[in-house]
Design a protein around this nucleic acid. Sequence first.
DNA 1: GAATGTTCTTGAACTAGGTTAAGTTCTGGT
DNA 2: ACCAGAACTTAACCTAGTTCAAGAACATTC
Lengths: 193, 193
Amino acid sequence: MNTAVILAAIKKHVALDEAEANFLAEQLIPKKLKPGELIEESGEMTKFMIYVNSGCLMTYYTDKDGTDHVIQFATTGWWTGDLHSLQKKVPSIYSTRALVESEILLLPKVSLELVLEKYLKFERYFRIIFQNALVVSQQRIIHSYASTAEERYLHFSEKYSNLEQYVPLKYIASYLGITPEFLSKIRRKLMEK
Amino acid sequence: MNTAVILAAIKKHVALDEAEANFLAEQLIPKKLKPGELIEESGEMTKFMIYVNSGCLMTYYTDKDGTDHVIQFATTGWWTGDLHSLQKKVPSIYSTRALVESEILLLPKVSLELVLEKYLKFERYFRIIFQNALVVSQQRIIHSYASTAEERYLHFSEKYSNLEQYVPLKYIASYLGITPEFLSKIRRKLMEK
DNA sequence: GAATGTTCTTGAACTAGGTTAAGTTCTGGT
DNA sequence: ACCAGAACTTAACCTAGTTCAAGAACATTC
């Protein structure tokens, strides 16, 4: 089981002794995902948080018309999953699937609670993780309100240049909040320059 | 000094003994704000987190054209401020001002760090606060992508019906990501029904 | 209570981005 | 090597929301 990656990542935020590291490692359930494989489906109860060891997953919301809206791409080192469903025990509104062959670690709800209860240091770790995620989420709101689609695409290309290689453009369009057709127009316009 | 409100709110999430409660209370700096008063300005370093004891503040981002974009209304019981600036010591991109007469409590950066260091229990409290804020922030992203302006306005009116009484419509329009003119049109259309 | 500045509304002209539908190019499976 | 299906593009037309400019309704101050 490969928990070296996650433990190293955690240690960038909080110092862990051997007992703490081992205890967490024991709770994690490794899993491999094939491209396109669904790990969590909307309508079901979320049972765990997902840590991406390698590869890339996307989390998306399906609206009443059946249109998907990508709300997050999670690459190596990111957590994903539906926190609201996990905590409030309501059916999830998100689905999560792998975009490429991926290795993930699952942290079940009870394990999370156990870890947090036993070693308060993990509270600090998740406080920092959620705090950072909140900052990113708020910056995304600003971007979606204060920038044009073209600006948002340029910003995305710059920030996630590696993603653009293997993520289908239609999902990138969805993440940017536009249609694939309009993304096409933007890309052509930029090529012509 | 009125710290009863915040301590009661915290105790809904974590149990505090007297020492912990007093220690936090000592760090908080109470302040009264007049309507329109600015408590934090973009471009400056954020020096504290802000807890709203009573009243209502708004946090907004001013874009390159000078247009303001409201990213949060903080009413009684909410935390606000620029987390990114606070932690990374970069100038804030947000401004925060009172919309009505308000009472706030300031938690300076050093005090926050001290509190978190001394009593890990506060890590849990802020982990929960940030986790909830993250959920709300992500739901707002979904709304802005999957709903029309009219739907967003109806949702807002329902969820923050009290706010609509005293918050100028132009700020509500800004929060919804539309122009005041278009909000006017929406409101008229809804009245006619 | 007139004067002045905001906020809110109206309407006409405009544009960023959506829709529909058809055509290409890419891909994976047999 | 071929086929089927998915991903991507193109183009014509459509619409939600913007812009600009002017006026109406409120506040606030002297």
